[in-house]
Amino acid sequence: METYKITFSMNILVVCVLFFLLFPVLVVVAISFSSAEFLSFPPPGLSLRWYQEIFSSLDWVASFWITIKVGALTAFFSVLVGVPAAFAIIRHNFFGKDMFNALILSALITPPIIKAMSIYLFYVQLGLNNTILGLALAHTVSGIPFVVINTAASLKNFDLNLERAACVHGAHPMQAILKITLPVVSAGVMVGAVFAFMQSAQELIVSIFVLGTVDRPLSVKLWEGVQVSTDPSIAAASTVLIGVALLSFIMVALIKRRDGSLAP
């Protein structure tokens, strides 16, 4: 595996790319602590005023909770429908598997604007516009592939003998799945759920259409702010989001480390 030594110039490139990827983000974080009222880097002084501003703003806090609620519901629904699907895919050879793959593919690859426009029109009939449930259901469509893929990966690595051992020693097949398979596979499910949540928290276009007026999630509020405001309060909100993303990232890493059966 050591066939190729990474040359010095290659390393330089890698460092440059990493810098390119990460530096801008660090800038945002730095500016959020700026004491100045405009966006300048490096910031003239340090202050927490922008954080105070958004944490005390009812609007921002409300948006935060909406994002959490929608995200949690999305993760929940995604797991509810995605886990059984993963079992079906891994354990059964069924007629129409290609059709089914196409279905999941379409959920994955449809451009957001199309999803947004179509579901908005659809919801008008159902009265689901401007509801948290409505947005969550719309986001679930995009969240499902994450749950299915990760759960299926865990299931694939699952040693069927564990279920057999459970049944031999007295467990009804359903009991075996509940007590043995699901707990062992739970890492994949959780990773999928986290991805589904994060995907929903960051989603913009569908949110603009379905829940973009009075009550809106963080992504919409952030979007408005980015276009309008010139002070670092947006940077502070962004940093909060970065923090949340980092937390989820660490969470996933911990889940995978503890479980050991999932590839990075």
């Binding site: 983000v25 945002v28 979007w223 947006i234 993303a245």
Partner: peptide, 10 residues
């Protein structure tokens, strides 16, 4: 993991 908005904003 980071928001598209955040990254573009940067």
């Amino acid at each position: 993991w980071l928001d598209f908005i955040v990254r573009s904003y940067s």
